[in-house]
Structure formats: C-alpha cells, structure tokens
C-alpha cells in the first residue's frame, strides 16, 4: 500500500473508518505517544509550569491527552471532521478547530504584542508571556500533495502560507517542533527552506538516522532569541537520538520505563475520571460535517448513505 498521503486528500483519507482504526490501534497509540514525549522534550518548556500549547493536525487527540496529563492546556486544529469527531467522542479537553493549515492559520498575528505594556510583570513570566509553543506530530507530509490546479493548492504555496502565518502568530521567543514523514530529502529541504524564509531559525533533527524503522524527522524551529525556560535559546538545534530506537519500544532505559508507566496510568484513568463532556456536540456534528465540505466546494465528498452516522455512539 502506498503512503496514505498519496492515496487521497487528508479529509477524505481520514474518514470515519480510518479515524477510528487509527485511534484504536495500540501500536499506533504507542508510536504517537513516544513522539509526543520526544516533541515535548525538544520544546523544552519551562519546567513545572503548565503551558498553552497549539497542536497542529491534532487528529483524534492522542497527543492532546498526553499534554493534558502533563498538566498543559492545548488547542488543536485539524482538517478531518472524522478525526475531530473521534476527539469529541473521546472527550478531550482541548479546544478544536476545523482548519486546513495549508490555507494559513487563523490565529491573531502578534497575539502576544499586546502584553508588552505590562511592564511590572514578574520577571519569570516575562518571556513566557510571549510564547505559544507549537507542536505537530505526523502531519506536514500531507502538505506535499496538490489537491487542485489552483495556485493556492501547490505545495510550496501551502507550506509558505502555513509557516508564514505560524511565525506571525508566535512572536518571539518561542519554539515549534514538528515531526513528519518526508518521502525524500528534498521534502525536508523544502520545508526548512520555506520555514527559514518565513523567519524561523532552527533546523532539522533526525532521531535514529540509521534505523529504517525507527528513523524520525523533526523540524525544530525557533522564533527569536532570548531567555526561555531559564536558559538562552541558542541558535543551536538539539541533537538527534542515536541507535535503533528500541529503547523507546521496550522498557530498557529509565525514560522508556517512565513513559510506559504513564501510558498504563492513562489507560486506567479513562474514562471514569474524565470530566463529563458536553454530549450535545456529537449528534449534530455527525449530521453536519459533510455539509462543511460541500459548502467549501469539494466535489469528492462522499454522498450521504444509509451508513451515515451508523454505529456512532450518539449521545442522550
């Protein structure tokens, strides 16, 4: 089977069936969890203090739940209504947006400039106040597929729109860590070139570069320089991990062990301890989500069938 992103646009590929399978697959949960912890490590957030994190291509919220456990508050954007619907069903705490990142992000550019006038702000908060850490797991590769011949559909245009609006929303200093699955080195180059043109510093990190299976590529992008989590954001990019990645899978090293414990704890916690979600959401969403895409002028949205909404856990 060819790579998912070659088969269909993301909002079509991640339909109800795939979104469910994707989320329930325990191997997948494990891999996404490992990458989430690694991305958090690379983000190097201020220790011991909850942050407000943007999850780009949040999908069904697998990463979001880990962010919640770590005490963070998050907001996610995703293009697939089916993935977002699974996130609703799973009662994630983060706020969700239906958004195509290739169209640019709808976040207030210079969001954090407004804060400058609070000159009495305590020193320790001075830098965090300008910061919206961003994180993205397994998404960017989707931007390499042109959906239509419209100029705004070309991969360079979409990447550029994404990085430019992301940069504008961040202001300085901040970090964005984006793991993705490039199909070639030229895709890595294209991403980092366009990110740099948008204003970002930073670079590419490759974990387990020699393992075909465990190799992971991260863009670790910096906005500005200055103090952040007590240290200076050097222009220096963190180093990739060596080896074959097995320590992440097995509980060989201490860290891996800890992560696994967390994972188990999470399984135990759900769903009883979760706060009651607003069930009202689910029902309406199922009925309306395809309409969203028809309105947007997509021809390839599957027509409603008798299967629409089938087997869905409907509230009330």
């Amino acid at each position: 089977m060819s790579r998912p992103e070659l088969q269909a646009p993301p909002e079509i590929y991640y339909d109800d069936t795939v979104a469910k399978k994707y989320t329930q697959n325990s191997r997948n949960q494990e891999i996404q969890a490992q990458m989430t912890y690694r991305a958090l490590e690379l983000l190097a957030l201020p220790a011991g203090r909850p942050s407000y994190i943007l999850d780009i291509g949040c999908g069904s919220g697998l990463s979001g739940e880990i962010l919640e456990e770590e005490g963070h508050v998050w907001t996610g954007v995703d293009i697939s209504p089916s993935m977002l619907e699974v996130a609703l069903e799973r009662e994630v705490e983060g706020d969700l947006f239906l958004q195509d990142i290739g169209q640019g992000l709808g976040f207030r550019p210079g969001t954090f400039d407004g804060a400058i006038r609070f000159v009495h702000t305590l020193d320790s908060y001075r830098y965090e106040r300008l910061m919206l850490p961003v994180f993205s797991i397994s998404v960017l590769q989707w931007l390499f597929n042109a959906e239509t011949s419209h100029p705004t559909s070309s991969p360079p245009h979409r990447l550029s729109r994404f990085f430019t609006t992301l940069y504008a929303a961040l202001k300085n200093p901040s970090r964005a860590v984006l793991q993705f699955y490039p199909s070639s080195d030229s895709q890595i180059t294209m991403c980092s070139t366009i990110a740099r043109r948008a204003g970002f510093g930073g670079g590419v990190i490759v974990d387990y570069p020699n393992s075909k299976k465990a190799r992971k590529v991260f863009l670790c992008l910096f906005v500005g320089t200055g103090s952040y989590s007590g240290s200076t954001i050097a222009e220096e990019v963190p180093r990739g991990l060596e080896g074959d990645g097995e320590e992440g899978d097995m509980d060989i090293d201490e860290e891996g062990e800890v992560k696994f414990e967390k994972r188990r704890e999470r399984e135990r916690k759900r769903p009883s301890e979760k706060k009651k979600a607003l069930k009202i959401r689910d029902k309406e969403w199922i009925l309306k989500k395809k309409e969203l895409y028809r309105k947007r002028g997509k021809e390839d949205v599957p027509k409603d069938s008798k299967y629409t909404g089938r087997k869905r856990r409907v509230a009330f």
């Binding site: 706020d95 947006f97 239906l98 729109r161 309306k288 947007r296």
Partner: peptide
C-alpha cells in the same frame, strides 16, 4: 458547530 469552529476558506478567499 458541535463546539468546533469551521475555519476553512473557499478557494477565492485563500491568501
């Protein structure tokens, strides 16, 4: 809808 804002733009609205 369902608590989720739809931020999608039509083709002619994309910068």
């Amino acid at each position: 809808m369902s608590g989720i804002p739809n931020m999608l733009l039509a083709e002619h609205e994309i910068a």
